[in-house]
Computed example of a mutant assay.
Amino acid sequence: MNEIEVRELVPSEYREWDLLVEEVQPGTPFHTSDWVEIYRDVLSRDLRIYGCFRDEELVGGCPLFVKNLKGVLKVASSISNMTDYCGPLLKESSGSKASKRVQETHEIFNALREFLCRQGFDSIHLKFSPGIEDIRPFTWNGWDSKVHYTHHLDLNEEVENNVSRTIRKDLKSASEAGLRTRVWNDLETYYGLLSKVYERQHLKPPLPRKFFEKVFNLIREKNIGYMLVSETPEGEAVAAHLTLYGKKGTIAWSSARDPAFSLRGSNALLYYKEFLDLKARNFEYMNVMAGNVPRFADYILGFSPKLVPYYSVTLENKKYSALKALHKIAT
C-alpha cells in the first residue's frame, strides 16, 4: 500500500476537505471549512487544515488552530471556544476485514502524528469526535490521552416511556404555564438569552456577538441547523436551543435560559419537542453535549440517554511542561 503524504491544504482545496467531512460518519459541522473559518476571521486565529493523501486522494486530515504564547510557546489545538471536538478524521476502509480497517487507520493517523511532530509545536491537543475509537497510533507513541462523554438520545424509542418523574413534572408545569415552542432563527433572541446567563455569573459570553452572527448566517444560507425557543403566552422567549444537523443525528450545540425565569419546564419542553420533531424527520439520535458537567449530566439523565465516550490526546515537550508547572506554582 502506498505511503501517506501529509501537507497543509490551500484554500482552493477546502471544498475537497468538506466533501470528506460530509462522507465520513464522525465528521461534524465543527470540521467544515465554513465553521473553522469563522474562528479564523472573527478571532484572528491562525487556521491550518492538514490533509492526508494517498495517491493524491484525500483520505484524512485535521484542522488546527495555532497560536504563539507571548512569543515563547507555539501551541496547536483542534478545538476552540464552544467547539468541543474537531479533531482528526479519516476515510473509512471499504474492506470488510477488521485487520484491514485497523491497518488503514493506523497508517493515516501515524502519518498525521509524525507530520505534526515535525512542525515545531511545543504543545499539540487533539480532541476526536464520537465514533473514532482507535487512538492507539498516538497513545503508543507517548501522547497522553483522556476520555470525555456525551449523551445520545435514541430517537427510535418512545420518549414518553423513558422520561423520569422529574421531567414529567417539568413538562406538566410548562403546559400549565402556557409555554409553547417554535423555530425562530433570531440572533437577537439567542444572544440576549446567552448574555443574561453569563451576566448572572459576572462573566462575558465565551465568544463575541460577531461569531454568532456568522453562525446564524450559516444556518440561513446552508441549512446547517435551527434554533428552537420556548416562550410565554405573551411571546417572551425564556429559553433557546441551537441545534446543528449531523448525518444520522443532531448536535445540541448551545442552550440558554433566562435565569430570571424560574420555571424549569421551559428547558424540558424544548428537549421534548425536539425529540418528537427530529423523530418525525427520521433522525436516529440527538447528541446532547452534556456529559462532562455534573449538573448538566444529572439533568439529561431524566431522558434516559446513552452515555457515549470520546477521546482527546495531548503531546507536550519539556519546555512547555516546565513553563506550565511554573505557571501553576505562580498562581
Results as ranks from 00 to 15, higher is better:
Phe211Gln: 03
Ile224Ser: 02
Val229Ser: 00
Asn141Pro: 04
Pro137His: 04
Gly120Cys: 06
Glu236Asp: 13
Lys169Asn: 15
Thr139Glu: 01
Gly120Phe: 08
Lys172Tyr: 13
Val102Thr: 11
Asp170Phe: 07
Asn162Phe: 03
Ile135Thr: 02
Leu116Arg: 05
Ser94Trp: 08
Lys210Ser: 10
Ser93Val: 09
Asn156Met: 10
Trp140Pro: 03
Phe212Lys: 04
Val197Met: 11
Cys117Glu: 15
Pro205Arg: 03
Ser173Tyr: 12
Glu236Leu: 11
Lys204Gln: 13
Leu179Phe: 13
His152Cys: 03
Gly120Arg: 04
His152Gln: 12
Arg136Lys: 14
Leu194Asp: 05
Met227His: 04
Glu176Ser: 14
Met227Leu: 14
Val197Arg: 00
Ile224Trp: 04
Glu92Asn: 14
His148Met: 04
Tyr198Val: 11
Glu92Gly: 10
Glu188Val: 05
Ala174Thr: 12
Leu153Thr: 04
Leu112Thr: 06
Asp170Glu: 15
Pro233Asp: 08
Lys210Ala: 14
Glu107Cys: 07
Val215Ile: 15
Leu112Val: 06
Gly142Cys: 04
Glu236Arg: 13
Lys222Pro: 08
Leu207Gln: 05
Ser129Val: 01
Glu234Ala: 13
Glu234His: 11
Gln103Ala: 13
Asn185Ala: 08
Asp186Arg: 07
Glu157Thr: 15
Thr181His: 04
Leu171Gln: 02
Arg101Thr: 00
Ile108Asn: 05
Val147Ile: 14
Asn223Thr: 09
Ile167Gly: 05
Ile135Asn: 03
Asn161Asp: 14
Glu107Asp: 15
Leu187Gln: 11
Ile167Leu: 13
Glu236Lys: 15
Ser123Val: 09
Leu207Glu: 03
Asn161Gly: 10
Arg182Val: 10
Glu158Thr: 14
Leu153Arg: 08
His106Met: 00
Val163Gln: 00
Ser123Gln: 14
Asn156Glu: 12
Lys97Leu: 11
Ala98Trp: 10
Glu107Phe: 11
His202Cys: 07
Leu218Met: 08
Pro205Gly: 03
Asn217Gln: 14
Thr105Val: 12
Lys196Thr: 12
Glu176Phe: 08
His125Gln: 10
Gly192Met: 02
Glu158Trp: 02
Glu158Asn: 15
Glu92Met: 13
His152Ile: 00
Gly142Ser: 09
Leu155Ile: 05
Gly178Phe: 09
Val102Leu: 10
Lys196Tyr: 07
Ile108Met: 03
Ile108Gln: 02
Thr150His: 06
Tyr191His: 07
Ser195His: 12
Phe216Gln: 05
Arg220Val: 08
Asp144Glu: 12
His152Glu: 01
Ile219Ala: 01
Ala174Lys: 06
Gly142Pro: 07
Pro233Tyr: 09
Arg118Leu: 10
Ser230Ile: 08
Lys214Ile: 02
Thr139Met: 00
Ser123Ala: 15
Lys169Phe: 06
Trp184Leu: 14
Phe216Tyr: 14
Val163Ala: 03
Tyr190Trp: 05
